[in-house]
Nucleic acid binder design. Structure first.
Length: 711
DNA sequence: AATCCGTCTATTTTT
DNA sequence: TAGACGGATT
């Protein structure tokens, strides 16, 4: 056998070569989980009686799915085409496209992402004349998604109180609207497929017979509906190979149900659970910190990571006076590591909530450290891209009301609210979508709308039969989007993104076998794309601990370790919340290969107020012998002393310093020339200013001695 | 139709 | 503090 199994440790080997029975692999952080999963698939195929098309592998992210396919292709000389490897949503999309009639959907059903869904809910609320203060769209959206993730339709809900009753009605109305418009949201992809397979015996048996081996990645993140979906496909006799880590379950707030692991053991009569506990990523002290911390959780399946590598460096802990000091220390420490030769891209700053990035970014910017922030808007979520996609959607299907409403007056073409309302009435009266209802109108409203209809018609005509990227170019031209943004003052980035959409279409057309317009639209909804294009440059990584899951870095900084922030005060109120926060800390710690830093700040600006903090309990849960304090060691006081008391009202603090210099101001220095003040601290004779002198560099100058004049 | 202004809110996020 | 949003204003 061509070395497939070489270098696997005994547990990995056991997992890969398990006989045909369902198995649960408890894979610790850094234990070679993806390798086991992909080698298992390769092994199944290579040893004979399993063909590629008998394999179904499910992941949560497109990235993971892609990674898996790449690795399998590298291991096997075969074409991976027949294999179904994808995300839950991607696979459901594939099934529903293939069986749209049986699923009760139009052939060109559109996928709504969360934004689209939010807009759709708002339209339902408006149509139903609901008081949006009492029933905010995001609450209704949350209600609908939670219900769907429990596998429930509006009619299946138990109505307890008035609010629930109203929510259920809105859920029903929303589903009706989606059905009318041929729209399917993310949860619906799952639920619809589930219903299709449970109702349709022929289809169910077909797929059950086909997928002899079902493999699931990150199983601890599955929700209840996903588990039922898997069970349905598995039937009585298929082999499930699920990989997960209960200690890394951090997504309960979005429906993940760790209990699925225990249920799986029971439902599938799992005889032996295989534990992958040997860690190939981190040095000993880091693992010791992680193990000791997670041992404070009660409900665990149980696991202890170990490594053959040495202890390595101790975990460093830093106490800062304030969030700004913490940020400045981070910048300094990172620069010093960079001087030692570490690549910036191999270091990460992690935080609990996105808001924390601001101070850090400020400090990094001031010291000129290149960085990259994860999170935020992704490519296909940007407004201008949404607009462009709406035009494409209309070209594919003019009956798409949400696309219609998005761009009917964008760029502005004199279609006002009154015209839209008239149109909506006409559509309702005629029982049609908005587009065909235009002919029912008269007067001014009709004129403006008719022009839009002509635009869509010409779009349809001129893109028909064109290769995808060319169709996108035509759309950009005809819709007037590019011209519009060119004329806007901050439109340059948007124009660039629109042009990038042509490249995205070209890349998609080249990579995918099924590459027509509808397929591209589904791709845009299911894979929102990278959040930032600038990959490759050597830049420090900034992200939340949640986004760090699955990644690893040479050096990791976990920041803001303060009671109330991490563990977050909200989470302490939630059932199992504290344990989930601890798992998050565990995930964060285990991202580090050789260097781990933990930091906290005594004071932090939060919601415009200074908060006084106590160090996080997680710090105390890490054994002293693996830790090295960079600041004087903290007394180990009782946590009951923890206060998040608001600042005692001392009236106002003089925010404008007495010396008259402000941050952002341009100044002139006799020796360094012109510069800009980027930061300041102290006051009176202690006042110091940090000034960016461009090529001369960044300097801290004592105001008392530096002869500064304003420039 | 664009812009201004007051009000509200503030944990984590993939599909 | 700062961003998003909705309503009112120009």
């Amino acid at each position: 056998m061509s070395g497939l199994l070489e270098n696997l440790n005994p547990e990995q080997l056991a997992a890969v070569t398990l006989p045909d029975q369902s198995a649960l692999i408890l894979a610790g952080a850094g234990s070679g989980k993806t390798r086991v999963l992909t080698t298992r698939i390769a092994w199944l195929i290579q040893t004979g009686n399993v063909g590629p098309n008998a394999v179904l592998a499910v992941t949560f992210t497109n990235k993971a799915a892609k990674e898996m396919l790449t690795r399998i292709s590298a291991m096997l000389p075969i074409n991976t085409r027949g294999m179904w490897v994808g995300t839950f949503h991607g696979l459901c999309n594939r099934l529903l496209r293939a069986h749209y009639r049986d699923a009760g959907l139009p052939q060109l059903f559109q996928i709504l992402d969360s934004q689209d869904q939010h807009a759709a809910v708002k339209r339902v609320l408006k149509a139903a004349n609901v008081d949006e203060d009492r029933f905010p769209a995001r609450d209704v959206q949350y209600f609908i998604n939670s219900a769907k993730e429990e596998g429930k339709r509006a009619r299946d809900l138990e109505i307890g109180d008035e609010i629930t009753r109203r929510h259920a009605e809105l859920y029903a109305a929303y589903d009706e609207q989606c059905q009318r418009e041929g729209a399917v949201d993310f949860a619906e992809l799952l639920l619809r497929t589930y219903e299709l397979l449970s109702r349709n015996e022929i289809l169910r048996e077909h797929y059950q017979r086909r997928f002899r081996h079902i493999l699931v990645d990150e199983f601890q993140d599955t929700n209840r509906l996903q588990y039922r979906w898997l069970k349905l496909l598995a039937g009585k006799s298929n082999v499930m190979f699920v990989v997960g880590d209960d200690d890394q379950s951090i997504y309960r707030f979005r429906g993940a149900h760790v209990g699925n692991m225990a249920e799986f053991e029971r439902d599938f009569h799992v005889e032996n659970v295989i534990r992958l506990e040997r860690n190939y990523r981190s040095v000993g002290h880091i693992l010791a910190a992680a193990n000791a911390l997670i041992a404070h959780n009660r409900r665990r399946l149980g696991k202890n990571l170990w490594t053959a590598a040495g202890h390595g460096e101790p975990v460093r802990v830093y106490e800062a006076q304030s969030d700004e000091h913490e940020a400045r220390w981070l910048a300094e420490e990172i620069q010093s590591l960079a001087r030692e030769g570490l690549r910036l891209a191999d270091m990460a700053i992690l935080y609990r909530s996105n808001a924390q990035s601001r101070v850090i970014e400020h400090a990094l910017f001031s010291s000129g450290v290149p960085y990259r922030v994860y999170g935020g808007l992704r490519f296909f979520e940007r407004m201008e891209i949404k607009h462009a996609l709406a035009y494409l959607r209309l070209a594919a299907n003019p009956g798409d009301d949400s696309a219609f409403l998005r761009v009917v007056n964008f760029p502005a073409r004199g279609v006002g609210t009154r015209s839209i309302e008239a149109l909506q009435d006409a559509a309702k009266a005629g029982g049609t979508s908005l587009y065909p209802a235009v002919t029912q109108l008269s007067g001014k409203a009709r004129a403006a709308l008719a022009a839009f209809v002509r635009l869509v018609e010409s779009l349809k005509a001129e893109t028909r039969g064109l290769p995808l990227p060319e169709a996108v170019e035509v759309m950009l031209e005809k819709s007037g989007l590019v011209v519009h943004y060119k004329g806007e003052k901050d439109g340059a980035d948007r124009v660039e993104n629109l042009l990038e959409l042509v490249n995205a279409a070209a890349a998609f057309a080249q990579e995918e076998e099924e590459n027509d317009l509808p397929a591209f639209l589904a791709h845009a909804a299911l894979e929102s794309g990278e959040s930032q294009a600038a990959e490759g440059a050597d830049a420090l990584q900034l992200m939340t601990m949640h986004s760090a899951k699955g990644l690893e870095f040479h050096a990791v900084f976990i920041t803001g370790l303060e009671e109330g922030l991490f563990p977050h005060e909200q989470s302490v109120l939630e059932d199992d919340g504290l344990e989930e926060e601890r798992r998050l800390m565990y995930v964060a710690i285990t991202r580090a290969r050789t260097r781990l830093y933990l930091s906290f700040a005594r004071t932090r600006m939060l919601h415009g107020q200074t908060r006084y903090n106590v160090a996080s309990r997680f710090l105390e849960e890490i054994p002293e012998n693996v830790v090295k304090w960079l600041t004087p060691r903290l007394g180990r006081g009782k946590l009951e002393d923890a206060v998040w008391a608001p600042e005692p009202n001392k009236g106002f603090k003089p925010k404008t310093p007495d010396h008259g210099f402000r941050i952002g101001q341009s100044v002139l220095h006799p020796k360094f020339g012109q510069g800009v003040i980027v930061d300041a601290e102290g006051s009176g004779t202690d006042a110091r200013l940090q000034i960016n002198f461009g090529k001369q560099g960044m300097k801290w100058l004592a105001l008392e001695y530096a002869k500064l004049t304003s420039a």
